[in-house]
Amino acid sequence: MLTSEQLKEYIQQGLPCDYIDVQGNDGQHFEAVIVSPEFTGKSMVQQHQLVYKALGPRMRDEIHALSMRTFTPETWAKR
């Protein structure tokens, strides 16, 4: 069963993150807050696509649902 900590590691392996928090304990449904400089200048859809790319086939094989909020370092600092 996939843990939120494993999912966090998977994202970090494929995407440089300034901050990441992943919640979810049923092994399939997760919520993530991700702050990455890679998101700068990209739309929300493009930011989410970067996360899906980092997860690769795991998104289809291991993860049933991933709700995410993505931020650039600048927008995160203003929160």
Rank of each mutant, 00 (worst) to 15 (best):
C17S: 04
A32D: 07
V45L: 14
H48S: 01
V35F: 00
E31I: 13
V22D: 02
P37Y: 09
I20T: 05
Q47T: 04
Q23M: 08
H29N: 14
G27H: 00
Q28E: 13
A54F: 13
F39S: 02
D21M: 10
S36H: 11
I20F: 03
V45A: 11
V22G: 03
A32C: 05
K53Q: 15
V51C: 02
Y52D: 12
Q23R: 15
I20C: 01
H29Y: 08
D18S: 13
Y19M: 08
L50Y: 11
V22E: 02
G27P: 00
D21Y: 09
Q46V: 03
V51I: 12
L50T: 08
G27R: 00
Q49D: 06
M44Q: 14
Q23E: 15
I34F: 03
D26K: 00
L55A: 11
A54C: 12
A54I: 11
V33S: 09
A54V: 13
L50R: 04
V33G: 04
E38N: 14
T40K: 13
D21L: 13
V51A: 03
L55H: 12
D26P: 01
M44C: 11
I34D: 06
H29L: 07
Y19Q: 08
Y52P: 01
S43C: 05
Y19R: 09
T40V: 12
P16H: 11
P16V: 12
I20N: 00
